[in-house]
Computed example of a mutant assay.
Amino acid sequence: MEKIYLDYNASTPMAPEVVEAMKPLLDNFYGNPSALHWAGRPVKELLHNARKQVAELIGCSPREIIFTSGGSEANNLALKGFYFKNRHKGNHIITSKIEHPAIMNPCKFLEQIGAKITYVDVDRTGKVTLEEIEKAITKETILISIMHSNNETGTLQPIQAIGDIAKKHGVAFHTDASQSVGKVPVHVDDLKVDMLTIAGHKLYAPKGIGALVLREGIQLEPLIHGAGHEFGLRAGTENTLLAVGLGMACQIAKQEVGTRGIKDLTDYFWQQLQDAFGDQVVLNGHPEERLPNTLNVSFVRKIGQDLLSAIPYLAASTGSACHAGSIELSPVLKEMDVPKEVGMGAIRFSLGRYTTKDEIAQVMESLKGIL
């Protein structure tokens, strides 16, 4: 049986064009990009070009791109770096209850050293309410961080409207767009954000590379101190190899983002599931305002992990965890008030650039056989 990969939200394979763009750096271009001699100058140019490619995808200046080791580091730099630099202005941060651990855990750390964190609720579709965010703002609020889209359900948040609220109150605004960049249009001016997180391995670039978009005028304290790399915000000789990979991935994404291919295939898959299983299958997340590739569905009164275990050729994710015979819902589904008998049967199918209709048909055949 051919293996089928429907876990693109967890990680994507590297695009062939990305691999080709990186190959020359494995043999040549070994100089330090900070060096002024013949070995350093061409590497610096490659790094600058990669920064430009990332910036062009999201509509900002190349000087506003800070390369990091991935989305987690970018989130940590945004939250901790902003707090350390600006805590004299206040100590209050607002986020949501369904953020990725790369936001939740830095927030918990900051709480240990004096920060006050407000975790706002979400509704049944996984969306925050603008009223609750605005109500949470106090004179001590310095930062709001709300994810652009949820990694489990794909639900898109009203980022632009939150940006308006943040600007009105003079509060900085960060969004973790790790799951969104490359899947839906993400433009920093339209979103009205001050900081935005990118994770390379979510858009066909290598693992170990990401970026924090830092708009001009926003001040951060570096987490890694040393020489003045990345405009003084991340010390350490730049990983030009991986940056070039991210740059090429962003160049490809700029051409593809917004096309309907993956969305049509995801909609087709959802229709097939409904036709086969009726009201025994439930969609988790917003029915329309979600990532075009993400289908988080629950098979009512089933256990998601049991279903996946019965289809060993399929790579997908479950929304619950099994501990000593008991089922624990994912924190995201729990905060969405998904009933246990529904949530325990959750599976996240996330499609990607290389998913085919034949693969969907094969998965459907297996699910019908099991259920």
Rank of each mutant, 00 (worst) to 15 (best):
N76W: 13
A78T: 07
L79S: 07
G81R: 12
G81M: 00
F82L: 01
Y83H: 03
Y83Q: 01
F84P: 01
F84H: 09
K85M: 11
K85I: 15
K85Q: 15
R87Y: 14
H88R: 04
H88V: 07
H88I: 01
K89N: 07
K89V: 00
N91G: 02
H92M: 10
I93G: 12
I93S: 08
T95A: 12
T95Q: 03
T95S: 12
S96F: 01
K97A: 15
K97I: 07
I98E: 06
I98N: 10
E99F: 08
E99N: 12
E99I: 05
P101C: 09
A102W: 08
I103Q: 05
M104A: 12
N105K: 15
P106L: 05
P106F: 00
C107V: 12
K108P: 00
L110Q: 04
E111V: 08
E111S: 07
Q112Y: 04
G114Y: 15
G114D: 13
G114A: 11
A115W: 13
K116L: 13
I117P: 02
I117E: 05
I117C: 02
T118K: 10
T118D: 15
Y119E: 13
Y119V: 07
V120G: 02
D121E: 10
D121P: 01
V122K: 06
T125P: 06
K127I: 11
K127R: 15
V128W: 02
V128H: 01
V128G: 03
T129I: 02
E131I: 12
E131N: 02
E131V: 08
E131S: 05
I133N: 01
E134M: 14
E134F: 08
E134S: 12
E134C: 05
E134L: 13
K135N: 14
A136H: 00
K139N: 14
